[in-house]
Amino acid sequence: MAFNILLVDDSLTVRSVIAKALRLAGVDIGQIYEACHGAEALTVLEREWIDLVFADISMPVMDGEEFVDRLAASGAIEHLPVVIVSSAGSGPRIQRLKDKGVRAYVQKPFTPEQIREVVDKVMGVTNHE
């Protein structure tokens, strides 16, 4: 099954690196969508079918925590796996985000293998062809 994936980060560099890691890791990608911050991501989610979200914490306009709060308030986070990718992942903050429904946390810098592992885990992929 191909996944539609939304990358939420204000850095084009990070969005490009995650997209490249997903491809190198052999993740079955349908479409990749991009947003520069949480508010833009919410707009994409209203418009498109998204299977998986990778989001940063520190972003302008709407940061990752507020974005997760919005998804939790609407109940969307129960059905939409959200993975936080950040270098600002202190223990208490990660726990707060997981308590709100975030499925996984990837610390930067990461490898394609780490991205593959987290996709398999949160999407329930059990075998690769």
Partner: peptide
């Protein structure tokens, strides 16, 4: 420390 709570600005 890894448990430190902090925020990075832009």
């Amino acid at each position: 420390g890894a448990e430190a709570d902090f925020k990075l600005l832009a």
